[in-house]
Write a protein that binds this DNA or RNA. Structure first.
Length: 468
RNA sequence: CGGGGAGUGGCGCAGCGGUAGCGCACCUGCUUUGGGAGCAGGAGGCCGGGGGUUCGAAUCCCCCCUCCCCGACCA
């Protein structure tokens, strides 16, 4: 039987769709661009949420919830913001069987509603900083949807903060970028990312500065995984947020906003998946270990249960697959598609020799392990999988990143990887030229990969790639 | 919105004037079970919609609808 997946080298986008279907991650919804997230996919998202939520709270933000419906007039208050979002708004014109006097938009993001309340809540410098996060769905009507990567409705987290000074806002935006986003991507998703500055062209509508986490996918294309924005005083002015300073003057606060979405699930698939399916880092895997009963046998079942029980006692997420009426091959393939990091095969033959077989999903190598040592070996393997997935992704990124010096070279090199060149060699005009070639400036950094103070700092380099 | 394709059981497709079929999946039974098992039996389809041509239309003609792919926007 052939693989249920199109090989990545044959057609990467199709492979991506195949993985989502075969691993049971999601289905298309009935309305174009909408997505049904199935249990296996949702469990992965829930774990991402939990990890992000803990880090967001550690950074001092509190969760709250704001309404789905926003008065259309709110969007218009910030000029760039409306302009940026108008093309993708879903607008509700009728409610309760009547035409609404003022249409309401389904939130594409919540800057406007949240800031209208910040105006009410912020009176004094003592009310600052105000650090709010919300988990919600948002709608941005998409012409070319792709499951998890670009859907008309998606789930995300959006943080919104107000600070007394520009410097404090900047520090907070960067703290979220590094301590929450970059750390989660690296340590939880096992996806190494480039952090950098967005160019004016790629900046969030209404922001004065946008920071980004960009990762390289299995086909060499870039994916924007998360952004953190400095909003300056734009929204504060638009929504009349003012506070009395210590010296008694009325001031506008400096704000930030930041978000990551279910797109992270797409990133995980494309960063780690192989021709056998998904490869999940143990930190996110709904099941970390499957103990597979190879053949129906009393002793085999007992041994499998014992290994599973020991792993559960030490906090691992384990399932015993004893569906022996389904062929061994079928079950192996299914768990590989789903990306379970480690599989233990228990069969009568090896058990007679006092052994079981342990298979790491990332390498697909089988090795015999004494029954008594199985649980301990599995625990070690789980740690190794997390590291090796990250290292593999980092190695790919390093191997497919080249330094170039002209826009022509950058466009060519970005065909299947990242091109790095002096930002001076691109410039605002050069970005249009690159766009015509199907590539874009993903971010600006200092040559050593660190973050620049601003996008006009001298000597910056541009990372150029094809983007999702 | 510009260019290109396609609509036929759950999914993927064939059939292109004679009244609908294949693969996978599904159901039942038996045999299997160490890498997507085999055999036998079975269920499931206003052939996208409307109109026309014809003795007869999934098939030919006209109109409409929808979806997919490629371009400009995008977490």
């Amino acid at each position: 039987m052939a693989s249920p997946l199109t090989p990545r080298a044959t057609d990467f986008p199709r492979w991506y769709q195949d993985v989502i279907t075969q691993a049971g991650l999601a289905d298309n919804g009935p309305v174009r661009g909408t997505m049904v997230i199935r249990p296996w996919g949702y469990a992965i998202w829930e774990r991402m949420q939990a990890e992000l939520d803990a880090r967001i709270k550690a950074a001092g933000a509190e969760n709250a919830y704001f309404p789905l419906f926003i008065p259309e007039s709110y969007l218009r208050r910030e000029a760039e913001h409306v302009e940026g979002f108008s093309p993708e708004l879903a607008v509700v014109t009728h409610g309760g069987g009547r035409r609404l006097e003022e249409p309401v938009v389904v939130r594409p993001t919540s800057e406007t509603v949240i800031n209208s309340f910040f105006a009410k809540w912020v009176q004094s410098y003592r009310d600052l900083p105000l650090l709010i996060n919300q988990w919600a769905n948002v709608v941005r009507w998409e012409l070319r949807p792709r499951l998890f990567l670009r859907t008309s409705e998606f789930l995300w987290q959006e943080g919104h903060t107000a600070h007394a000074t520009e410097a404090e806002a900047r520090v907070y935006a960067l703290r979220i970028l590094r301590d929450v986003y970059e750390a989660t991507m690296r340590d939880v998703l096992s996806v190494p990312v480039l952090v950098g500055h967005k160019t004016a062209r790629e900046r969030f509508a209404g922001a004065i500065r946008t920071w980004t986490c960009e990762a390289m996918m299995g086909d060499g294309k870039a994916l924007q995984m998360g952004t953190s924005h400095e909003l300056g005083q734009n929204f504060a002015r638009a929504f009349g947020i003012q506070f009395s300073s210590e010296s008694g003057t009325q001031e506008y606060p400096w704000q930030t906003s930041w978000g990551v979405s279910t797109r992270l699930v797409g990133a995980l698939i494309m960063a780690h998946g192989d021709d056998a399916g998904l490869r999940l880092p143990p930190q996110l895997a709904p099941l970390q270990v499957v103990v597979l009963v190879v053949r129906d046998d009393e002793g085999v079942r007992r041994a499998a249960e014992e290994i599973a029980a020991e792993l559960r006692r030490t906090g691992r997420r384990v399932r015993v697959d004893d569906a022996v009426d389904v062929s061994f091959g079928r079950r192996s393939v299914d768990w590989e598609l789903k990306g379970v990091p480690v599989r233990v095969e228990v069969g009568p033959r090896e058990l007679a020799a006092g052994q079981v077989t342990v298979v790491r999903r990332d390498r697909q190598e089988k090795r015999p392990v004494p029954v008594g040592a199985a649980a301990a070996e599995v625990r070690k393997d789980l740690l190794k999988v997390a590291v090796s997935l990250r290292e593999e992704a980092a190695a790919r990124q390093a191997a497919r990143t080249v330094a170039v010096s002209t826009r022509e070279e950058a466009a060519a090199a970005a065909a299947d990887g990242f091109a790095v060149l002096p930002w001076d060699a691109v410039g605002v005009g050069g970005e249009l030229e690159l766009a015509a070639a199907g590539v874009s400036v993903r971010c600006l950094q200092r040559p050593d990969g660190t973050l620049a103070e601003s996008d006009d700092e001298p000597g910056l380099v541009a990372v150029v790639a094809k983007a999702y």
